[in-house]
Design a protein around this nucleic acid. Structure first.
Length: 519
RNA sequence: GGCCCCGUCGUCUAGCGGCCUAGGACACCGGCCUUUCACGCCGGUAACACGGGUUCGAUUCCCGUCGGGGUCACCA
């Protein structure tokens, strides 16, 4: 039997980080077993603009490199892959359920149901529908309809016995059938609901393993009931613990950004992204720019592999020691047996650590390609970039080394990519390193005068020269290094000063020092 | 509240009866390196929720308590 897993997003307009982890585990499991991974759109509630709401989700999958064998755009032998287009299949299933007595037409009104519920609650009993408005024959149905009632189709759940479910992650889980409700599977207008559709599609699409978030665990009995009633082979279930809020065990939610911002690590991540977004002129509303949404990471220059590696470790472990996995290694080692049962809270710091290490391993050329895209978005490089810009980028990247942790961090070095007259000077840095120290301006002036004689104009030669310069003048290296850095970059921090000087070149250095002197 | 799930350092986790004076990673705190920042290196603080069993021996097995969470729709 070929392993087939699926991820069934509802077209909501964004890809939730927890959803990505669920998708990743599905993808990994299918790849591990040489099977297929499919995407199916759960749009049973018929939103108007499914395509538009689906686009960001597919975009996210593509960015992450989680390819799907069947689904939207990919097609496949079991399509269509949109539930809104599979109505006949659901109708047939409903008819079969009805014919077998596993479902019934029900004519209760919302108010009637409500009063039964309240009565049960008042009596301290668990609510179980009386089935008073159940129509088991066409004649009964006609009678109710004559009263102007609208019929829905409900599942006729067993009222005794129990279901022992063998979950691949949780082991055996038992549910008493009596505590299940007669859920509606088809509305009065004929449209079908998620649970029915999901079970019918999983069967039709030959899904062998349903790997999904824990919140679906309580839904499982009714799905098993539908599957069994229809004579389907029940798929294997694996319920993943959900991704929790930072520092809490509550499910991570897109809507609670304000709350998460009280968490220091989360705030650090948002601020980090915000700085980059500001330079890119991106909108930063919680709807689009939010670490709970995958787009956030793409926009500020995360590496997909780093995000995935982090997410992999959120609930799964190899041996407790090893944490770094390349894409093929993930596929090779993944197993459901090593998925943890407890929810795991999202830790922005650790994510950043994975990103940091992944970036350090990245060959310079690839790093440059990723940074270039951000530079272009910020308008600091042309499309295509000139040869000069590419050389500059490579030099800056080589000099910056580990400091560029996100592709967007390249924007911290924007001063190298702009005109000598345009880059800004940090006022505090100027005050501390140039205006403050009495000798700073004089040293800068004397140094600038010697620039013309430094040959070759390389980092090594510049260093030798500056050391000799400070010795000659009887000052310490620190007396001029800081002033010089501020003079040529506008900032108090940055990579090696000699690299900066060499990258800029002689004439740009002269111009910049001249500008700083006039400040 | 009913049903279900879960419970090892702040966080992610290893541990499937003795190897545990509980290991790794991130974070944190010190120190080193150093022209700033970052990296790197060295060291440190820090956890088995609690109570009963079972056993020669429990972090590991069982029960209970407590705690946390999920779910209870004509949403998905």
């Amino acid at each position: 039997m070929t392993v087939r897993t699926r991820f069934a997003p509802s077209p909501t307009g964004y890809l939730h980080i927890g959803g990505v982890r669920t998708a990743l585990f599905n993808w990994l499991f299918s790849r591990r077993h040489g099977g297929q991974f499919l995407l199916r759109v759960d749009d049973t509630d018929q939103q108007r603009n499914v395509e538009a709401a689906l686009a960001p989700i597919l975009h996210g999958f593509r960015w992450l490199g989680l390819d799907w064998d069947e689904g939207p755009e990919a097609g496949g032998p079991y399509g269509p892959y949109y539930q809104s287009q599979r109505g006949e299949l659901y109708q047939a299933a409903v008819n079969q359920l009805l014919a077998q007595g596993a479902a019934y037409r029900d004519y209760a009104t919302a108010a009637e149901l409500q009063s039964e519920r309240e009565a049960a609650q008042a009596a301290g009993r668990q609510f179980t529908y009386s089935r008073r408005w159940m129509a088991e024959t066409p004649r009964e149905a006609e009678r109710f309809e004559a009263q102007g009632r609208q019929g829905v189709v409900r599942l006729k759940m067993p009222r005794d016995g129990e279901l022992a479910l063998d979950d691949l992650i949780r082991g055996e889980v038992r549910f008493a059938w009596a505590s299940e409700q007669d859920h509606v599977i088809q509305r009065a207008d004929g449209s079908c609901l998620y649970h029915l559709a999901s079970v019918v599609d999983d069967e039709a699409m030959k899904i062998t393993h349903v790997i999904r978030a824990e919140e679906h665990l309580p839904n499982t009995p009714r799905q098993v009931f539908i599957a069994q009633s229809l004579g389907y082979a029940v798929p294997a279930y694996a319920h993943l613990p959900y991704v929790a809020e930072p520092g809490s065990k509550t499910k991570l939610s897109k809507r609670k950004l304000d709350k998460y911002l009280k968490n220091r690590d989360f705030t650090a991540l948002v601020d980090r992204g915000g700085r980059i977004a500001a330079r890119l002129g991106l909108e930063t509303t919680a709807d689009t720019f939010n670490p709970v949404i995958v787009d956030f990471y793409e926009q500020i220059g995360f590496l997909p592999d780093a995000l995935l590696n982090y997410l992999l470790l959120l609930g799964w472990s190899f041996d407790g020691e090893r944490e770094e996995f390349s894409r093929p290694e993930m596929v090779q080692h993944f197993s459901l047996e090593r998925v943890n049962r407890a929810p795991a809270s999202f830790d922005p710091q650790k994510l950043l650590a994975f990103q940091d290490r992944a970036m350090q391993r990245l060959p310079l050329a690839e790093k440059a390609a990723r940074c270039l895209a951000l530079l272009q978005r910020a308008g600091l490089a042309g499309e295509p970039p000139g040869e000069e810009a590419q050389r500059l980028l490579a030099d800056v990247l080589a000099a910056a080394g580990d400091r560029v942790k996100l592709a967007g961090d390249i924007l911290d070095y924007e001063e190298f990519f702009v005109d000598d007259q345009s880059f800004p000077y940090d006022a505090a840095a100027v005050a501390k390193r140039i205006s403050g120290p009495a000798a700073a301006r004089d040293l800068l002036r004397r140094y600038a005068a010697e620039l013309a004689g430094i040959e070759p104009f390389t980092a090594a030669a510049l260093e030798t020269h500056l050391k000799e310069f400070v010795e000659r003048r009887g000052v310490k290296l620190g007396d001029i290094v800081h002033a010089l850095r501020v003079a040529v970059t506008g900032k108090a921090v940055g990579f090696g000063l000699f690299d900066a000087l060499a990258i800029l070149g002689r004439s740009r250095c002269e111009r910049r020092i001249g500008r700083a002197l006039a400040l």
